[in-house]
Protein backbone atom coordinates (compact mmCIF):
# COMPACT_ATOMS: atom_id res chain seq x y z
CA UNK A 1 0.00 0.00 0.00
CA UNK A 2 1.35 3.40 -0.88
CA UNK A 3 0.50 7.01 -0.37
CA UNK A 4 -2.80 7.99 1.13
CA UNK A 5 -4.20 4.45 0.82
CA UNK A 6 -2.13 3.41 3.81
CA UNK A 7 -3.38 6.30 5.88
CA UNK A 8 -7.00 5.71 4.91
CA UNK A 9 -6.79 2.00 5.75
CA UNK A 10 -5.14 2.86 9.09
CA UNK A 11 -8.37 4.58 10.09
CA UNK A 12 -9.93 1.12 10.31
CA UNK A 13 -7.40 -0.23 12.82
CA UNK A 14 -9.18 0.86 16.02
CA UNK A 15 -12.41 -0.82 14.91
CA UNK A 16 -10.51 -4.01 14.10
CA UNK A 17 -8.93 -4.04 17.55
CA UNK A 18 -12.28 -3.43 19.24
CA UNK A 19 -13.93 -6.20 17.21
CA UNK A 20 -11.24 -8.75 18.03
CA UNK A 21 -11.37 -7.79 21.72
CA UNK A 22 -15.16 -8.18 21.74
CA UNK A 23 -15.01 -11.60 20.11
CA UNK A 24 -12.34 -12.81 22.53
CA UNK A 25 -14.12 -11.56 25.62
CA UNK A 26 -17.55 -12.82 24.53
CA UNK A 27 -16.13 -16.26 23.68
CA UNK A 28 -14.43 -16.51 27.07
CA UNK A 29 -17.47 -15.40 29.04
CA UNK A 30 -20.38 -17.03 27.23
CA UNK A 31 -20.75 -20.60 25.99
CA UNK A 32 -23.85 -19.59 24.01
CA UNK A 33 -21.73 -17.13 22.09
CA UNK A 34 -19.15 -19.77 21.18
CA UNK A 35 -21.88 -21.95 19.71
CA UNK A 36 -21.33 -22.48 15.98
CA UNK A 37 -25.00 -21.76 15.25
CA UNK A 38 -24.77 -18.40 16.99
CA UNK A 39 -21.63 -17.44 15.13
CA UNK A 40 -23.17 -18.25 11.76
CA UNK A 41 -26.23 -16.29 12.80
CA UNK A 42 -24.09 -13.27 13.62
CA UNK A 43 -22.31 -13.59 10.29
CA UNK A 44 -25.60 -13.73 8.38
CA UNK A 45 -26.99 -10.73 10.27
CA UNK A 46 -23.79 -8.79 9.85
CA UNK A 47 -23.67 -9.59 6.14
CA UNK A 48 -26.78 -7.50 5.50
CA UNK A 49 -25.59 -4.58 7.60
CA UNK A 50 -22.11 -4.83 6.11
CA UNK A 51 -23.50 -4.50 2.59
CA UNK A 52 -25.59 -1.46 3.54
CA UNK A 53 -22.54 0.01 5.25
CA UNK A 54 -20.56 -0.20 2.00
CA UNK A 55 -23.22 1.85 0.30
CA UNK A 56 -23.32 4.36 3.14
CA UNK A 57 -19.55 4.51 3.39
CA UNK A 58 -19.09 5.71 -0.18
CA UNK A 59 -21.62 8.47 0.30
CA UNK A 60 -20.04 9.54 3.59
CA UNK A 61 -16.66 9.68 1.85
CA UNK A 62 -17.89 12.43 -0.46
CA UNK A 63 -19.27 14.28 2.55
CA UNK A 64 -22.88 13.24 1.95
CA UNK A 65 -25.24 10.87 3.73
CA UNK A 66 -27.88 8.46 2.44
CA UNK A 67 -30.90 7.96 4.70
CA UNK A 68 -32.97 6.44 1.90
CA UNK A 69 -31.18 3.09 2.17
CA UNK A 70 -33.71 1.95 4.79
CA UNK A 71 -36.72 2.17 2.46
CA UNK A 72 -34.72 0.76 -0.45
CA UNK A 73 -33.97 -2.31 1.68
CA UNK A 74 -37.62 -2.76 2.66
CA UNK A 75 -38.63 -2.32 -0.97
CA UNK A 76 -36.05 -4.95 -1.94
CA UNK A 77 -37.50 -7.51 0.46
CA UNK A 78 -40.96 -6.84 -0.94
CA UNK A 79 -39.84 -7.28 -4.55
CA UNK A 80 -38.24 -10.65 -3.78
CA UNK A 81 -41.21 -11.78 -1.67
CA UNK A 82 -43.74 -10.75 -4.32
CA UNK A 83 -42.10 -11.86 -7.54
CA UNK A 84 -39.61 -14.66 -6.91
CA UNK A 85 -41.90 -17.62 -6.02
CA UNK A 86 -41.35 -20.10 -8.82
CA UNK A 87 -38.62 -19.94 -11.42
CA UNK A 88 -35.01 -18.83 -11.43
CA UNK A 89 -36.02 -16.23 -14.03
CA UNK A 90 -38.43 -14.74 -11.53
CA UNK A 91 -35.70 -14.62 -8.91
CA UNK A 92 -33.46 -12.67 -11.26
CA UNK A 93 -36.33 -10.40 -12.26
CA UNK A 94 -37.12 -9.60 -8.62
CA UNK A 95 -33.46 -8.89 -7.86
CA UNK A 96 -33.30 -6.56 -10.85
CA UNK A 97 -36.40 -4.75 -9.57
CA UNK A 98 -34.86 -4.38 -6.11
CA UNK A 99 -31.53 -3.13 -7.41
CA UNK A 100 -33.13 -0.98 -10.12
CA UNK A 101 -35.45 0.75 -7.66
CA UNK A 102 -32.45 1.43 -5.44
CA UNK A 103 -30.45 2.87 -8.32
CA UNK A 104 -33.38 5.03 -9.41
CA UNK A 105 -33.82 6.38 -5.89
CA UNK A 106 -30.09 7.08 -5.82
CA UNK A 107 -30.40 8.94 -9.11
CA UNK A 108 -33.08 11.20 -7.64
CA UNK A 109 -30.92 11.74 -4.54
CA UNK A 110 -27.87 12.54 -6.63
CA UNK A 111 -29.67 14.96 -8.93
CA UNK A 112 -31.29 16.62 -5.93
CA UNK A 113 -27.89 17.17 -4.36
CA UNK A 114 -26.00 18.21 -7.48
CA UNK A 115 -28.52 20.10 -9.62
CA UNK A 116 -30.74 21.57 -6.95
CA UNK A 117 -28.24 21.95 -4.13
CA UNK A 118 -30.51 20.21 -1.62
CA UNK A 119 -28.63 19.02 1.48
CA UNK A 120 -28.04 15.26 1.24
CA UNK A 121 -29.74 14.60 4.56
CA UNK A 122 -32.96 16.31 3.47
CA UNK A 123 -33.28 14.85 -0.03
CA UNK A 124 -32.52 11.31 1.13
CA UNK A 125 -35.01 11.49 4.00
CA UNK A 126 -37.60 12.71 1.49
CA UNK A 127 -37.02 9.86 -0.95
CA UNK A 128 -36.99 7.50 2.02
CA UNK A 129 -40.49 8.69 2.98
CA UNK A 130 -41.74 8.41 -0.60
CA UNK A 131 -40.46 4.89 -1.03
CA UNK A 132 -41.75 3.84 2.38
CA UNK A 133 -45.20 4.91 1.24
CA UNK A 134 -44.89 2.72 -1.87
CA UNK A 135 -43.77 -0.21 0.29
CA UNK A 136 -46.76 0.17 2.61
CA UNK A 137 -49.17 0.33 -0.34
CA UNK A 138 -47.68 -2.75 -1.99
CA UNK A 139 -47.54 -4.77 1.20
CA UNK A 140 -49.23 -3.12 4.21
CA UNK A 141 -47.95 -5.79 6.55
CA UNK A 142 -45.25 -8.39 6.04
CA UNK A 143 -45.98 -11.28 3.69
CA UNK A 144 -45.19 -13.09 0.49
CA UNK A 145 -42.53 -15.75 0.28
CA UNK A 146 -39.04 -16.12 -1.01
CA UNK A 147 -38.13 -18.71 -3.65
CA UNK A 148 -36.97 -21.73 -1.66
CA UNK A 149 -34.22 -22.72 -4.09
CA UNK A 150 -32.74 -19.23 -3.98
CA UNK A 151 -33.06 -19.07 -0.25
CA UNK A 152 -31.35 -22.40 0.35
CA UNK A 153 -28.59 -21.42 -2.09
CA UNK A 154 -27.90 -18.22 -0.15
CA UNK A 155 -27.89 -20.16 3.11
CA UNK A 156 -25.74 -23.01 1.85
CA UNK A 157 -22.19 -23.15 3.03
CA UNK A 158 -18.92 -23.15 1.19
CA UNK A 159 -16.41 -24.19 3.82
CA UNK A 160 -17.42 -22.53 7.09
CA UNK A 161 -18.97 -19.45 5.52
CA UNK A 162 -22.39 -19.32 3.96
CA UNK A 163 -22.95 -17.85 0.52
CA UNK A 164 -24.44 -14.56 1.70
CA UNK A 165 -21.38 -13.67 3.77
CA UNK A 166 -19.08 -14.72 0.94
CA UNK A 167 -20.99 -12.45 -1.44
CA UNK A 168 -20.77 -9.63 1.10
CA UNK A 169 -17.00 -10.09 1.31
CA UNK A 170 -16.79 -10.14 -2.48
CA UNK A 171 -18.62 -6.79 -2.61
CA UNK A 172 -16.11 -5.41 -0.12
CA UNK A 173 -13.15 -6.63 -2.16
CA UNK A 174 -14.54 -4.98 -5.29
CA UNK A 175 -15.41 -1.72 -3.58
CA UNK A 176 -12.03 -1.66 -1.80
CA UNK A 177 -10.22 -2.05 -5.12
CA UNK A 178 -12.35 0.61 -6.77
CA UNK A 179 -11.93 3.11 -3.93
CA UNK A 180 -8.22 2.81 -3.46
CA UNK A 181 -6.87 1.76 -6.81
CA UNK A 182 -8.95 3.41 -9.51
CA UNK A 183 -9.31 6.96 -10.68
CA UNK A 184 -13.00 6.90 -9.76
CA UNK A 185 -11.99 6.05 -6.18
CA UNK A 186 -9.38 8.77 -6.11
CA UNK A 187 -12.02 11.20 -7.35
CA UNK A 188 -14.29 10.20 -4.46
CA UNK A 189 -11.61 11.08 -1.91
CA UNK A 190 -10.80 14.28 -3.78
CA UNK A 191 -14.45 15.36 -3.71
CA UNK A 192 -14.65 14.52 -0.01
CA UNK A 193 -11.57 16.62 0.67
CA UNK A 194 -12.78 19.63 -1.24
CA UNK A 195 -15.35 19.64 -3.99
CA UNK A 196 -14.34 23.02 -5.42
CA UNK A 197 -10.68 22.07 -5.62
CA UNK A 198 -11.55 18.72 -7.16
CA UNK A 199 -13.53 20.55 -9.83
CA UNK A 200 -10.56 22.85 -10.44
CA UNK A 201 -8.34 19.84 -10.89
CA UNK A 202 -10.46 18.73 -13.81
CA UNK A 203 -12.57 16.15 -11.99
CA UNK A 204 -16.18 15.98 -13.13
CA UNK A 205 -17.50 16.25 -9.61
CA UNK A 206 -21.20 16.37 -10.42
CA UNK A 207 -21.16 13.23 -12.52
CA UNK A 208 -19.16 11.44 -9.85
CA UNK A 209 -21.48 12.49 -7.05
CA UNK A 210 -24.59 11.32 -8.90
CA UNK A 211 -22.88 8.03 -9.66
CA UNK A 212 -22.06 7.54 -5.98
CA UNK A 213 -25.69 7.97 -4.97
CA UNK A 214 -26.84 5.62 -7.72
CA UNK A 215 -24.34 2.99 -6.57
CA UNK A 216 -25.34 3.51 -2.96
CA UNK A 217 -29.00 2.92 -3.85
CA UNK A 218 -28.19 -0.14 -5.96
CA UNK A 219 -26.08 -1.70 -3.23
CA UNK A 220 -28.81 -1.01 -0.68
CA UNK A 221 -31.14 -2.89 -3.07
CA UNK A 222 -28.76 -5.87 -2.92
CA UNK A 223 -28.83 -5.65 0.88
CA UNK A 224 -32.63 -5.84 0.64
CA UNK A 225 -32.34 -9.07 -1.34
CA UNK A 226 -29.99 -10.50 1.30
CA UNK A 227 -32.39 -9.52 4.05
CA UNK A 228 -35.40 -11.09 2.31
CA UNK A 229 -33.57 -14.41 2.36
CA UNK A 230 -32.90 -14.06 6.08
CA UNK A 231 -36.50 -13.25 7.02
CA UNK A 232 -38.11 -15.36 4.21
CA UNK A 233 -40.76 -12.69 3.59
CA UNK A 234 -41.19 -9.14 2.45
CA UNK A 235 -41.75 -6.39 4.99
CA UNK A 236 -42.37 -2.64 4.50
CA UNK A 237 -40.66 -1.62 7.73
CA UNK A 238 -37.89 -4.17 8.13
CA UNK A 239 -35.26 -1.88 6.65
CA UNK A 240 -35.97 1.05 8.97
CA UNK A 241 -33.12 0.59 11.40
CA UNK A 242 -30.52 0.23 8.67
CA UNK A 243 -30.23 3.92 7.79
CA UNK A 244 -28.87 4.84 11.19
CA UNK A 245 -27.07 1.53 11.74
CA UNK A 246 -25.15 1.84 8.49
CA UNK A 247 -23.99 5.35 9.40
CA UNK A 248 -22.99 4.02 12.82
CA UNK A 249 -21.09 1.10 11.32
CA UNK A 250 -19.16 3.42 9.01
CA UNK A 251 -18.38 5.93 11.74
CA UNK A 252 -17.30 3.25 14.20
CA UNK A 253 -15.07 1.99 11.39
CA UNK A 254 -13.26 5.33 11.21
CA UNK A 255 -15.01 7.03 8.31
CA UNK A 256 -15.28 10.76 8.80
CA UNK A 257 -18.71 12.37 8.52
CA UNK A 258 -16.90 15.34 6.96
CA UNK A 259 -15.85 13.26 3.99
CA UNK A 260 -12.56 12.22 2.48
CA UNK A 261 -11.24 10.15 5.38
CA UNK A 262 -11.48 6.42 6.06
CA UNK A 263 -11.58 3.10 4.31
CA UNK A 264 -14.41 0.75 3.50
CA UNK A 265 -12.73 -2.01 5.55
CA UNK A 266 -13.59 0.00 8.63
CA UNK A 267 -17.27 -0.17 7.72
CA UNK A 268 -16.96 -3.97 7.56
CA UNK A 269 -15.56 -4.13 11.09
CA UNK A 270 -18.10 -1.55 12.22
CA UNK A 271 -20.98 -3.67 10.91
CA UNK A 272 -19.72 -6.67 12.84
CA UNK A 273 -19.23 -4.64 16.02
CA UNK A 274 -22.81 -3.36 15.92
CA UNK A 275 -24.19 -6.81 15.17
CA UNK A 276 -22.17 -8.30 18.01
CA UNK A 277 -23.49 -5.72 20.45
CA UNK A 278 -27.05 -6.67 19.50
CA UNK A 279 -26.24 -10.35 19.73
CA UNK A 280 -24.52 -10.12 23.10
CA UNK A 281 -27.32 -8.04 24.56
CA UNK A 282 -29.90 -10.48 23.18
CA UNK A 283 -28.04 -13.36 24.75
CA UNK A 284 -28.01 -11.51 28.04
CA UNK A 285 -31.75 -11.01 27.76
CA UNK A 286 -31.58 -7.21 27.60
CA UNK A 287 -34.62 -5.47 26.10
CA UNK A 288 -34.24 -4.10 22.55
CA UNK A 289 -35.09 -0.67 23.90
CA UNK A 290 -31.83 -0.63 25.80
CA UNK A 291 -30.07 -1.75 22.67
CA UNK A 292 -31.08 1.54 21.03
CA UNK A 293 -29.56 3.39 23.95
CA UNK A 294 -26.36 1.35 23.68
CA UNK A 295 -26.14 2.04 19.94
CA UNK A 296 -26.74 5.73 20.50
CA UNK A 297 -23.97 5.92 23.09
CA UNK A 298 -21.56 4.06 20.83
CA UNK A 299 -22.31 6.33 17.89
CA UNK A 300 -21.94 9.54 19.88
CA UNK A 301 -18.79 8.28 21.59
CA UNK A 302 -17.09 7.20 18.40
CA UNK A 303 -18.03 10.44 16.63
CA UNK A 304 -16.49 12.36 19.50
CA UNK A 305 -13.37 10.22 19.74
CA UNK A 306 -12.59 10.42 16.03
CA UNK A 307 -13.30 14.14 15.97
CA UNK A 308 -10.91 14.76 18.87
CA UNK A 309 -8.26 12.57 17.28
CA UNK A 310 -8.50 14.44 13.98
CA UNK A 311 -8.31 17.80 15.69
CA UNK A 312 -5.14 16.73 17.47
CA UNK A 313 -3.58 15.72 14.20
CA UNK A 314 -4.13 19.15 12.67
Amino acid sequence: MTGSVKKQVKQAVPSMVVLIAMILIASLVSPTFRNAYNIRNIAAQAAVLAVVAVAQCKVLLIGGIDMSVSSIISFGTIMVAMFSQDTAGQVIFSILLAVGAGALTGLVNGIGVVKFGIPAMIITISTQAFLKGICLILMPSGGGSVNTGFSSFMRSRIGVLNVSIILAILIYVIVFAVLHYTRFGRNIYAIGNGEVYAEQSGIKTKKNIVLIYVLSGAIAGIAGVFLSVRISTGNPLVGDSYAMDSVAAAVVGGISMNGGVGSVIGAFFGAFILTLINNIMNNMGISPYYQYIAKGIILVASLMIFQIKRKEMK
Binding site: R186, N193, I203, V261
Partner: peptide, 20 residues
Protein backbone atom coordinates in the same frame (compact mmCIF):
# COMPACT_ATOMS: atom_id res chain seq x y z
CA UNK B 1 -4.17 26.97 -2.05
CA UNK B 2 -6.39 24.27 -3.45
CA UNK B 3 -4.82 21.10 -2.11
CA UNK B 4 -6.41 17.95 -0.75
CA UNK B 5 -5.25 17.72 2.85
CA UNK B 6 -5.89 14.01 3.24
CA UNK B 7 -3.87 13.03 0.19
CA UNK B 8 -0.16 12.81 -0.34
CA UNK B 9 1.93 15.45 -2.07
CA UNK B 10 2.28 13.14 -5.07
CA UNK B 11 -1.43 12.39 -5.29
CA UNK B 12 -2.17 16.10 -5.20
CA UNK B 13 0.33 16.93 -7.91
CA UNK B 14 -1.04 14.24 -10.20
CA UNK B 15 -4.73 14.67 -9.30
CA UNK B 16 -6.92 14.15 -12.34
CA UNK B 17 -3.91 12.91 -14.35
CA UNK B 18 -3.08 9.73 -12.47
CA UNK B 19 -1.13 7.13 -14.47
CA UNK B 20 -2.99 3.83 -14.86
Amino acid sequence: LSLMEEMTVGENIMLGREPK
